[in-house]
Design a protein around this nucleic acid. Structure first.
Length: 260
DNA sequence: ATGCCGACAGGATGTCGA
């Protein structure tokens, strides 16, 4: 199965680009982030016409996550535990059955956390801690799991075009990087880094200051795999080409092939 | 350069993203 994640920065603004990409790459499962719409205004029909089932956890204007799957979506669960009063739509989980077994998928949109030193940054850290708790609980199932999406964390200096430019940004703070590492230390593996040791491979380029043209990017969209999913990992790549198209998202898709 | 670009809600321009 080819499973992918893409922060589309508004699913409505990106509908044509998303349909084109789905037709070209034909992933079996797609996690979308920043859909920026409510469940009832999600353009499900456009995806259903391409053969996808849709699970949506949206909200008005901001955030919002979804999962598209050619196979039926089972056990669909929105929200992370421990977020009483948290109205942000940032997490959606589902199970898909393949020819050789099941895979559990989560579409993740972690908080940005800027500016640092504010409650936005502490919200980011507490949200990642809630994700860690969920990630730990899921390991007891001993099944293939892919926690994929926009983590809003630059894991290492080699995932950033210029660390000096990002040293005061929430995405590169030691606490944020440690929070991501803490999930990896449970036993989850960064699929891209397992398959590709090349430094300076990015998933996001700012719209501003010609960042794309100058390759001033960062790698913040990640696929974290449980040990049972890593056993079945066949490859992982970043779909950089879509960033150079008309009306692009500032993020590009990341995908991996998992034998399930 | 606390900006530059882009999406949203709403109907001008402020908020948010990263």
């Amino acid at each position: 199965m080819k499973i992918a994640t893409w922060n589309v920065n508004s699913v409505k603004a990106r509908l044509d680009a998303a349909v084109q990409w789905l037709k070209e790459d034909s992933p079996d499962i797609v996690c979308l982030q920043e859909i920026k719409c409510t469940d009832d205004t999600f353009p499900a029909t456009a995806f259903e016409e391409l053969g996808y089932n849709c699970a949506v956890h949206g909200q008005k204007t901001y955030n919002g996550v979804a999962i598209l799957s050619k196979r039926p979506l089972e056990d669909v669960t929105p929200r992370l535990a421990g977020g009483e009063g948290d109205g942000h739509a940032r997490y959606l989980e589902a199970v898909v059955t393949g020819d050789k077994g099941v895979i559990r998928i989560a579409s993740i949109y972690a908080p940005n956390g800027n500016p640092i030193g504010t409650e936005k940054f502490s919200y980011k850290l507490s949200w990642l801690e809630r994700l860690h708790a969920r990630a730990r609980a899921l390991l007891t199932y001993e099944e293939p799991i892919a926690l994929m999406g926009d983590y809003n964390v630059i894991p290492t200096p080699e995932d950033c075009w210029d660390v000096v430019a990002w040293e005061n940004d929430a995405l590169y703070q030691p606490e944020a990087r440690a929070a991501l590492r803490k999930i990896e230390n449970l036993g989850y593996v960064d699929a891209f880094r397992t398959c590709n040791a090349q430094p300076y491979q990015y998933t996001f380029w700012d719209y501003q200051a010609g960042a794309w043209q100058k390759d001033h990017g960062i790698r913040i969209d990640h696929i974290l795999l449980s040990p049972q999913a890593v056993d079945r990992l066949k490859g992982c790549a970043i779909d950089k080409r879509v960033r150079g198209r008309e009306k692009p998202s500032d993020h590009v898709p990341v995908w991996c092939e998992v034998e399930v």
